[in-house]
Lab assay of single mutants.
Amino acid sequence: MQRVNMIMAESPGLITICLLGYLLSAECTVFLDHENANKILNRPKRYNSGKLEEFVQGNLERECMEEKCSFEEAREVFENTERTTEFWKQYVDGDQCESNPCLNGGSCKDDINSYECWCPFGFEGKNCELDVTCNIKNGRCEQFCKNSADNKVVCSCTEGYRLAENQKSCEPAVPFPCGRVSVSQTSKLTRAETVFPDVDYVNSTEAETILDNITQSTQSFNDFTRVVGGEDAKPGQFPWQVVLNGKVDAFCGGSIVNEKWIVTAAHCVETGVKITVVAGEHNIEETEHTEQKRNVIRIIPHHNYNAAINKYNHDIALLELDEPLVLNSYVTPICIADKEYTNIFLKFGSGYVSGWGRVFHKGRSALVLQYLRVPLVDRATCLRSTKFTIYNNMFCAGFHEGGRDSCQGDSGGPHVTEVEGTSFLTGIISWGEECAMKGKYGIYTKVSRYVNWIKEKTKLT
């Protein structure tokens, strides 16, 4: 034993070699072989497995989906700052455009905790909710729209109204504003409101030439003092309507412009014939205590009207009353817009006519005020429907199939267009061939041609 100890002390290297040989010859039971080890760690190889990531292109799944990435790591994937920024906006807080917040056709661009709407022409605001041009839906104005110097929408209202708090709607500024039905039992019968379409306001006024200088022999019209197929109006439903009495009662109609003036057809009036105007009328054979009678003290036909040349060209006249009318729910003026808007309103496509005229061709006159909704007829169809001249200051309205029309005794009465609950004068009943005849239409004086003249002559002093 002493000898062994001496050998170990003198030859430590020998001992180490012996131990190493023993270990190498022993069977290893701690580690699995290569094949079995792979069965336990069965993990798919990654895209760049075996390579240094710093030297390969980034992978979106590896960089940002398996674990949260930084902007720089995302930049490695896209290799483009702009594309990385677009991805980053949604990656950080989701897609803010998912709810489609942009209105009126706006395009949404996502941002971090926010979004941006790219608005089409005519709109602005956070969600493109603000109209900035009158060309689109009248700028959301209830009545009139004008573009300011910086191309912003400025709404306005006709006389007797003021802008509401929203700067879009119009509200009454006087007790009985024009064009409004205020009798409670008839307010439910107000005709369907007309909503502004998209309009090209630059070209809204037709490029028409008034044929002022045409000389033409007097034409022989049949029954051209021209509501057939209409309905009984309720008291106060058309408070701007008046009836004219002269040699015979209810020979023509008219509309209240203001307390002192009536507008009617020029062919209705004769110099030297006494005319009485009755406002607030409903049943011409009954006294309903809503009527107001006034005498006409002055007749002003349009300066281009000449019955000797043509009885229905420039067929418009103004009547001055001896005493002002007292405005109330049964006696209310009709609204008159400017030339541009009167023309736009007419193009809405349908209007209402009213009167006490004959209820059928050569038949009896109506006792109760009649009204009828009539569609506008395109000019080409209008011209083809008659052998008589249709001037540019006239328009056609009615039904091709016949059966409904204005008729004798309705002449001078109103053709009105309702705009968001307020009625505007767009025409004056003038003439036609018979009444409600198939293929024939009622012919009306186009008020847009005469609004400046009306307003100039009827100013209240």
Results as ranks from 00 to 15, higher is better:
Gln2Met: 12
Arg3Asp: 05
Val4Ala: 11
Asn5Ala: 11
Met6Gly: 14
Met6Cys: 11
Met8Asn: 13
Met8Gly: 08
Ala9Gly: 15
Ala9Thr: 11
Ser11Tyr: 07
Pro12Asn: 10
Pro12Ile: 15
Gly13Pro: 08
Ile15Tyr: 05
Thr16Pro: 05
Cys18Tyr: 04
Cys18Met: 12
Leu19Ile: 14
Leu19Gln: 01
Leu19Arg: 02
Leu23Gln: 01
Leu23Arg: 01
Ala26Leu: 04
Glu27Ile: 01
Thr29Gln: 10
Val30Leu: 14
Val30His: 15
Phe31Ser: 15
Leu32Ile: 13
Asp33Lys: 07
Asp33Gln: 07
Asp33His: 09
Asp33Asn: 08
Glu35Pro: 12
Glu35Tyr: 09
Asn36Ile: 08
Asn38His: 11
Asn38Glu: 15
Lys39Met: 13
Ile40Asn: 15
Ile40Tyr: 15
Arg43Ile: 10
Pro44Glu: 15
Lys45Thr: 06
Lys45His: 08
Lys45Asn: 11
Arg46Pro: 15
Tyr47Ala: 15
Gly50Pro: 11
Lys51Asn: 12
Lys51Tyr: 05
Leu52Lys: 12
Glu53Leu: 06
Val56Ala: 15
Gly58Ser: 13
Gly58Val: 13
Asn59Ser: 08
Leu60Val: 15
Leu60Gly: 13
Arg62Met: 11
Arg62Gly: 10
Cys69Gly: 04
Ser70Gly: 13
Glu73Asn: 10
Arg75Asn: 14
Arg75Ile: 06
Arg75Ser: 05
Glu76Cys: 04
Phe78Val: 14
Phe78Pro: 15
Phe78Arg: 15
Asn80His: 07
Thr81Gln: 10
Arg83Met: 06
Thr85Ile: 08
Lys89Val: 06
Val92Trp: 07
Asp93Ala: 15
Asp95Asn: 15
Asp95Trp: 07
Cys97Phe: 01
Cys97Pro: 02
Cys97Val: 02
Glu98His: 11
Ser99Lys: 15
Asn100Arg: 15
Pro101Lys: 05
Pro101Gly: 03
Leu103Pro: 03
Leu103Val: 08
Asn104Trp: 03
Asn104Asp: 02
Gly106Ser: 04
Cys108Asn: 00
Cys108Lys: 02
Lys109Thr: 11
Asp111Gln: 12
Ile112Leu: 15
Asn113Val: 10
Cys117Tyr: 01
Trp118Lys: 15
Trp118Phe: 08
Pro120Tyr: 05
Phe121Trp: 08
Phe121His: 14
Gly122Tyr: 04
Gly122Leu: 04
Gly125Thr: 02
Gly125Met: 02
Lys126Gly: 05
Cys128Leu: 02
Glu129Ser: 05
Glu129His: 08
Asn135Ile: 13
Asn135Gln: 09
Ile136Gln: 15
Asn138Val: 06
Asn138Cys: 02
Arg140Lys: 15
Gln143Val: 00
Phe144Met: 06
Phe144Cys: 00
Lys146Leu: 11
Asp150Ile: 10
Asn151Trp: 06
Asn151Arg: 10
Asn151Asp: 10
Val154His: 08
Glu159His: 06
Tyr161Ala: 01
Tyr161Phe: 09
Arg162Pro: 00
Arg162Trp: 06
Leu163Ala: 03
Glu165Trp: 07
Lys168Asn: 09
Cys170Leu: 01
Cys170His: 01
Cys170Gly: 01
Glu171Tyr: 09
Pro172Asn: 06
Pro175Phe: 05
Gly179Pro: 01
Val181Gln: 15
Ser182Leu: 05
Val183Tyr: 10
Val183Thr: 11
Ser184Ile: 13
Ser184Tyr: 10
Gln185Val: 12
Thr186Asn: 10
Leu189Val: 10
Arg191Gly: 13
Glu193Gln: 06
Phe196Thr: 12
Phe196Ile: 14
Phe196Asn: 12
Pro197Lys: 12
Asp198Trp: 12
Val199Cys: 06
Asp200Phe: 10
Asp200Lys: 11
Ser204Gly: 07
Ser204Ala: 05
Ala207Gln: 11
Glu208Lys: 10
Asp212Ser: 07
Ile214Cys: 09
Thr215Phe: 07
Gln216Lys: 05
Gln219Phe: 08
Ser220Ile: 11
Phe221Val: 07
Phe224Leu: 12
Thr225Pro: 11
Thr225Asn: 11
Thr225Ala: 09
Arg226Asp: 10
Val227Asp: 13
Val227Met: 11
Gly229Cys: 10
Glu231Ala: 07
Asp232Arg: 13
Lys234Asn: 09
Lys234Met: 07
Lys234Tyr: 14
Pro235Gln: 07
Gln237Leu: 09
Gln237Ser: 06
Phe238Thr: 04
Phe238Leu: 05
Trp240Arg: 01
Trp240Asn: 00
Trp240Tyr: 03
Gln241Asn: 13
Gly246Leu: 03
Lys247Val: 08
Lys247Met: 05
Cys252Ser: 01
Cys252Pro: 00
Gly253Trp: 10
Gly254Val: 00
Asn258Val: 01
Asn258Met: 00
Asn258Gly: 03
Glu259Phe: 03
Lys260Ala: 03
Lys260Cys: 03
Trp261Val: 01
Ala266Phe: 02
Ala266Asp: 00
Ala266His: 02
Cys268Ala: 00
Glu270Val: 05
Glu270Ile: 05
Glu270Thr: 05
Thr271Pro: 04
Thr271Asn: 06
Gly272Gln: 02
Val273Pro: 02
Ile275Pro: 05
Val277Arg: 01
Val278Gln: 04
Val278Met: 07
Ala279Ile: 01
Ala279Arg: 01
Gly280Pro: 02
Gly280Thr: 01
Glu281Trp: 08
Glu281Met: 10
Asn283Lys: 06
Asn283Val: 07
Asn283Leu: 11
Glu285Gly: 07
Glu285Ala: 12
Thr287Ala: 11
Thr290Asn: 10
Asn295Tyr: 03
Asn295Pro: 02
Val296Leu: 02
Ile297Pro: 02
Ile299Gly: 04
His302Cys: 02
Tyr305Thr: 02
Asn306His: 10
Asn306Ala: 07
Asn306Val: 07
Ala307Ile: 09
Tyr312Pro: 03
His314Thr: 02
Asp315Lys: 00
Ala317Gln: 00
Leu318Arg: 00
Leu319Tyr: 02
Glu320Asn: 02
Leu321Gln: 00
Leu321Trp: 00
Asp322Cys: 00
Asp322His: 03
Leu325Pro: 00
Leu327Pro: 04
Tyr330Thr: 03
Tyr330Lys: 05
Tyr330Ile: 03
Pro333Glu: 02
Ile334Leu: 06
Ile334Pro: 00
Cys335Thr: 01
Cys335Gly: 02
Ile336Tyr: 02
Ile336Trp: 00
Ala337Asn: 01
Ala337Arg: 01
Asp338Leu: 03
Lys339Gln: 14
Lys339Asp: 06
Lys339Glu: 10
Glu340Gly: 15
Tyr341Ile: 12
Tyr341Met: 15
Thr342Arg: 01
Asn343Ala: 08
Phe345Ala: 05
Leu346Ser: 03
Lys347Ser: 13
Lys347Asn: 09
Gly349Trp: 06
Gly349Tyr: 12
Ser350Met: 07
Ser350Lys: 10
Gly351His: 05
Tyr352Glu: 02
Val353Tyr: 04
Val353Arg: 12
Gly355Thr: 06
Arg358Tyr: 05
Arg358Leu: 08
Phe360Trp: 12
Phe360Val: 12
His361Asp: 15
Gly363Ala: 05
Gly363Pro: 13
Gly363Gln: 12
Gly363Tyr: 09
Gly363Arg: 05
Arg364Phe: 07
Gln370Pro: 03
Leu372Val: 11
Arg373Asp: 03
Arg379Lys: 13
Cys382Tyr: 02
Cys382Gln: 02
Leu383Gln: 12
Arg384Leu: 06
Ile390Lys: 08
Ile390Thr: 10
Asn393Ser: 13
Met394Arg: 03
Ala397His: 01
Gly398Pro: 03
His400Leu: 14
Gly403Thr: 11
Arg404Gln: 05
Arg404Asp: 15
Ser406Asn: 15
Ser406Gln: 13
Gln408Trp: 15
Asp410Thr: 10
Gly413Asp: 06
Pro414Phe: 14
His415Asn: 00
His415Cys: 02
Val416Phe: 07
Glu418Cys: 06
Val419Asp: 01
Glu420Ala: 14
Thr422Arg: 03
Leu425Gln: 03
Leu425Ala: 01
Thr426Asp: 00
Gly427Arg: 00
Ile429Cys: 06
Ile429Ala: 14
Glu433Thr: 08
Glu434Ala: 14
Cys435Val: 03
Ala436Phe: 07
Ala436Leu: 12
Ala436Trp: 07
Lys438Ala: 07
Gly439Cys: 05
Tyr441Cys: 03
Ile443Val: 08
Ile443Glu: 02
Tyr444Trp: 01
Tyr444Glu: 01
Thr445Ser: 05
Lys446Leu: 03
Ser448Tyr: 03
Tyr450Ser: 02
Trp453Asn: 00
Trp453Phe: 05
Ile454Gln: 00
Lys455Glu: 05
Glu456Arg: 07
Lys457Asn: 15
Lys457Gly: 06
Thr458Pro: 00
Lys459Phe: 06
Leu460Asn: 08
